[in-house]
């Protein structure tokens, strides 16, 4: 029995059911050709420009850190899998635990470094903080 056939079948269902609902809705719903409603919603204001603009993503340093830690979790998972059975088969703690402690330790040191550098904080845009100080003075 190939397990992945069943998983694929659920994937087919996961796409098929939404599409079926779309078809049902297309049969039921009206279509009123009136233009005013197609304006994007901006709390009742007339929108200025599109949303497809260059945007200051203020957490990009966090995103870079995330990559490191995501790869790390991939490496931790196999270790958690064999940890207990390795111990039960007579491996010593020095063989199975110490290397992983060193590995996690290195990453925690990295996290501490990023923490001190302020990389895991929401980056404040220089313009916004300048404006804030201008308003205060």
């Amino acid at each position: 029995m190939n397990q992945w056939i069943a998983i694929g079948a659920l994937g087919v269902m996961g796409v098929g059911i939404p599409i079926a609902m779309m078809v049902v809705s297309a049969l039921l719903r009206p279509s009123v050709s009136e233009q005013g409603k197609t304006v994007v919603y901006e709390s009742g204001e007339v929108p200025t420009g599109t949303a497809h603009v260059q945007f200051n993503i203020q957490y990009y340093m966090v995103a870079l850190l995330f990559l490191v830690f995501d790869v790390e979790t991939v490496l931790i998972f196999p270790w958690t899998l064999i940890y207990r059975s390795a111990l039960e088969q007579g491996a010593t703690l020095g063989q199975v635990l110490a290397p992983m402690l060193v590995f996690i330790g290195v990453l925690v040191v990295g996290l501490g470094w990023a923490w001190r550098n302020g990389a895991v904080e929401w980056i404040k845009s220089p313009r916004a903080s300048r404006r804030k100080t201008e308003r205060q003075s």
Partner: peptide, 8 residues
């Protein structure tokens, strides 16, 4: 399901 689908 019977609401109109508005495409902005």
């Amino acid at each position: 399901l019977s609401k109109e689908l508005i495409v902005p």
